[in-house]
Each structure stands twice: as structure tokens, then as C-alpha cells.
């Protein structure tokens, strides 16, 4: 019986070593280890041997079974690796083909700038406030010291819809709202970004454009504070080395009034 088992072992090792594919391997697995396999047959035939020999033969069968199982397993792993490799090969794609983009939209450049300005001033404790774009003459002009017939109204030729209502020509209109609504007369720190409209249209002027207005009301506020604030603002927007120049000017609603010249962000020199 020992010889028989040894013969099975030898045949099995030889056959399994030379096996060609996973199917053949599976057949051999059934042939040697299956319920009707050769080793099982040996165990079944154990009734015919002496009780003394039974444990010896039994353990021998188990050793052989373990050995065969092990080499089958090794073969299986090898075949799986080959199979996987073949499968992956078939899945090869052209990685240079266009992607399936989930395209994100884009923010309008002007929105970006306005948000940047808002964030800067919010970080300095300003509130961002808004007002009507269809404004009354009272808030757009009269309350800003521009009575009817004032020559400075010429600078801002306007779109009226009635003698009393117009599209606001300046975000300064919001200033008057903010001040009127501040009944407790507390200090004010606001900016008002927004669209404004003027009756003007050529290659360099659009009838609709954006402004940002700033208003600070408090005790002990001076032009030096205005200049410092504008410096922070301009340097943030145009670069750290931006230089500012105040030039006296005239606006009916501020006194004294200045225009601000800044060094060019590109050539760093010329007046803008």
C-alpha cells in the first residue's frame, strides 16, 4: 500500500508540474484530491489493512495530500497571476484621450475683483452695503450737495426715467442712505460696491460700470487715515510697491476733495 501511495505521489507531482492551464490543474485536483480521487480511494481501501497499520497509512496519505495540495496551490497562484496579467493587458487604454471633465464654471473677472475688495475691507471691520440702482434724484444728487442746475451734474450725464427717478450715477447715493438710516449717530465704516450708469458710451466708456464707495465717519478721522486706508487698498490690489499721490480736486459732496494718482502696476512709473 505504501508503494501505491508513493506511486500516486510521484505521478501527481509529475503531472502537476507539467500542467498547462488552470482547467487541467483543476482536473488534476479532482483526480488526486477529489471525493472520488485516487488518495480518497486509498483511504477507502483502509478497511482491508490491519488496525496497527491504519494510523501509519492514514498519516502517510495526509502527508502526501498536504504535499499535493501545496504544489497545486502554488500552481494556482501562478496561473491566477498569468490570468490577471492577461485580463489587465486587454484593458489597456489610451491615457492620452480627452478626459470626461466635470467642468466648473467661472466667475466674472469683475465679481472676483469686487469680492477681493469686499474681503479686504470686511477684514478691516467695514460692512458691505448695497442700495437701489434705480435711485431718486434726492439721494443721487440733492443730498450730495448737487442741487438742480449745479454745473457738476454735467460730469455725470444721467439716465432719468422720470424727473425724480434715475439710474444711479454714483455709488455715493448709498452714502446718504447709510447716514440717514443711522439714527443713533454711531460711527460708520462701510463700503458700497455696485453698478452705476452714465449717459456716456464710446470706445473707452461703457454706460454701465462698477464703482466702490467707502465711507468712514468717526471722531478724530483725518486725511491721513484716508490716505493710509487707500494705500493698503491700492497695494493689495495693484502690488506692494504701489505709490500714491493725492491731487486736490473737486467733488461737491466732500471738502477737502482729492483725486488719487497711483504708480502704474505695470511700468511702475507713469500716472494712472
Amino acid at each position: 500500500m505504501k508503494e501505491q501511495i508513493e506511486a500516486i505521489r510521484k505521478n501527481a507531482i509529475e503531472e502537476i508540474t507539467n500542467v498547462k492551464d488552470a482547467k487541467e490543474l483543476n482536473d488534476l485536483k479532482v483526480k488526486y484530491l477529489g471525493k472520488k480521487g485516487e488518495l480518497t480511494a486509498v483511504l477507502r481501501g483502509m478497511g482491508a489493512i490491519s488496525p496497527e497499520e491504519r494510523p501509519i497509512i492514514g498519516s502517510l496519505v495526509n502527508v502526501v495530500r498536504d504535499e499535493i495540495e501545496k504544489i497545486i496551490e502554488e500552481k494556482e497562484v501562478a496561473f491566477k497571476a498569468i490570468e490577471m496579467e492577461e485580463k489587465l493587458k486587454k484593458e489597456k487604454i489610451d491615457i492620452t484621450l480627452p478626459s470626461n471633465k466635470v467642468k466648473r464654471g467661472s466667475k466674472h473677472p469683475l465679481s472676483r475683483i469686487i469680492e477681493e475688495v469686499e474681503d479686504l475691507f470686511v477684514s478691516m471691520g467695514y460692512d458691505v452695503v448695497d442700495g437701489p440702482e434705480l435711485e431718486t434724484d434726492e439721494y443721487c444728487f440733492e443730498r450730495l450737495n448737487l442741487p438742480k442746475g449745479h454745473p457738476a451734474r454735467d460730469m455725470q450725464d444721467s439716465f432719468y426715467v422720470t424727473p425724480e427717478y434715475l439710474l444711479r450715477t454714483q455709488t455715493s447715493a448709498v452714502q446718504a442712505h447709510v447716514m440717514m438710516e443711522n439714527e443713533e449717530k454711531t460711527p460708520i465704516r462701510v463700503i458700497c460696491p455696485g453698478k452705476v450708469y452714465r449717459r456716456d458710451d464710446d470706445a473707452t466708456h461703457s454706460h454701465q460700470f462698477a464703482q466702490v464707495e467707502g465711507l468712514v465717519i468717526d471722531k478724530d478721522i483725518s486725511l491721513a487715515d484716508l490716505k493710509g486706508t487707500l494705500e493698503v487698498f491700492m497695494r493689495k490690489m495693484l502690488g506692494e510697491n504701489t505709490q500714491l499721490r493725492f491731487r486736490p480736486s473737486y467733488f461737491p459732496f466732500t471738502e477737502p476733495s482729492y483725486e488719487v494718482d497711483v504708480t502704474c502696476f505695470k511700468c511702475k512709473r507713469k500716472r494712472m
Partner: peptide
């Protein structure tokens, strides 16, 4: 130029 000395507050 200087920055105004104002109470801290969140904008």
C-alpha cells in the same frame, strides 16, 4: 498715511 484707530469689529 496711517490706518484709522477704530474699535475692532467684524465686517
Amino acid at each position: 498715511g496711517k490706518l484709522p484707530e477704530l474699535p475692532l469689529k467684524q465686517g
